[in-house]
Design a protein around this nucleic acid. Structure first.
Lengths: 220, 220
DNA sequence: TGTTGATGACTGACTGGTCATTTAGTAAAT
DNA sequence: ATTTACTAAATGACCAGTCAGTCATCAACA
């Protein structure tokens, strides 16, 4: 009974059919909404609205709200970690230079980008989804930590670094990145963190600790 | 119709009136349930059941579920941080000894206790409650970081440590604790972390980086 | 070039269930 | 007998997920 009468006399079509762009657009919108509200606090209808799409359509591309979460988490970090791993394996300068240069650069960007909310999402929802955390561990954590380990091993072999606890726990290299993510999520409005300086101080510390004092043997 | 007929013929009273113990008992139960399910995933009725209390009673002691969260977050870390701060200010040995001894001991316990879930709760719910994070920042973060700063300043004054980025960012001393909390919450089932070794490696690193190389002046 | 039928991308009102919170009443304690 | 800690059942808001129907698009035919 007359519902398409007046509300769009000269307007264009009510929607466009764009099967292939939709999933990405929706995931993008989801990242933003999740960042603002967290996963539990975000309504599917919010995400739909942000994506300029009806709620029903969401379920054509993502079977459940959780599936959407998985798409978001999988899509945003994985490529970057691969890039870092590749950069490490291609690097043939000193490890210290790598840490002070490309590595610092990368983690500094990472820690000031939207990617930080992945930490929030993983903390909030990870424990409920072992398959998701397993995937993340296998495809992000091991790739990243593995590459870091290779970098450090190489540096030790070449006498640049001395062996240290960091070789057993490459997580230590990334701990301040996680810290920065947590800080920004929770305290930034009360006390902003100067992330780049913070991470620079960190790199200075670990490089200083690992660098073999000159004239202590094992040089080539 | 007839539900209190047979199930407790000779039993004692159906409940006890214990106005003063209740709040603490409920907060304790809440910590456990929040740890298992997260805040959003925990039902008020779950907490009530764990505390051995009816759902309605919860609302006599805590006006809302959020209030309960605040009680939990405020109650569990604050005392410990105070303890550390006091220990620091009373210490009169070397800073390195403090970091390798009491400090390592404390953060190691902290990182393997139920307290780690505070990080999870703050990440999930903090952004929604500026008053809560403000309180936490003022009463936990500044107290802890302030004490650490004093320790480091003293060590520099006495020529034990050289000035470094860590003095500007004492957060770096705690970053691995946060990392350990995140790791255990998310990845522990896939790859357990040996927290004590991990934190020992961290302390070794920072002490090594900050310790003034012998014979470089400024000794007393 | 214009019409038309089929396809499936898309909409939005609706449903069913879950919970936080309220409230009317019960019984422990004094 | 009165007070009030406490219970249990009711209330109502909220929201993930569904589904019956709409309409943008395009191929095939005129």
């Amino acid at each position: 009974m007359s519902q398409q009468d007046n509300h769009q006399a000269a307007t264009g079509p009510r929607f466009k059919r764009r099967k292939d762009q939709r999933p990405e657009e929706i995931a993008e919108a989801a990242l933003e909404v999740f960042a603002e509200r967290g996963f539990a606090g975000a309504r599917v209808s919010d995400v739909a609205e942000r994506a300029g799409v009806s709620k029903g359509l969401m379920y054509l591309y993502y079977k459940t709200k959780q599936d959407l979460l998985k798409a978001v988490i999988r899509g945003f970090i994985e490529p970057r970690v691969r890039d870092v791993a590749t950069a490490i394996d291609r690097w043939d300068g000193s490890a210290a230079d790598f840490l002070r240069g490309p590595f610092l650069q990368t983690i500094s960007q990472l820690a000031t980008s939207r990617a930080v909310i992945i930490v929030r999402l993983m903390m909030a929802e990870g424990p409920k989804h072992p398959d998701l955390t397993k995937y993340y561990y296998d495809h992000v954590i091991t790739v990243g930590l593995g590459a870091m380990s290779r970098l450090l091993d190489r540096a030790v072999d070449q006498g640049e670094f001395r062996p240290s606890g960091i070789h057993r726990f490459p997580q230590l290299l990334l701990a301040p990145v996680v810290m920065a993510a947590v800080w920004q999520t929770v305290f930034d409005r009360h006390q902003p963190l100067e992330v780049h300086d913070f991470l620079t101080a960190h790199i200075d510390t670990v490089v200083s600790a690992m660098t073999r004092p000159v004239g202590e043997g094992n040089e080539p």
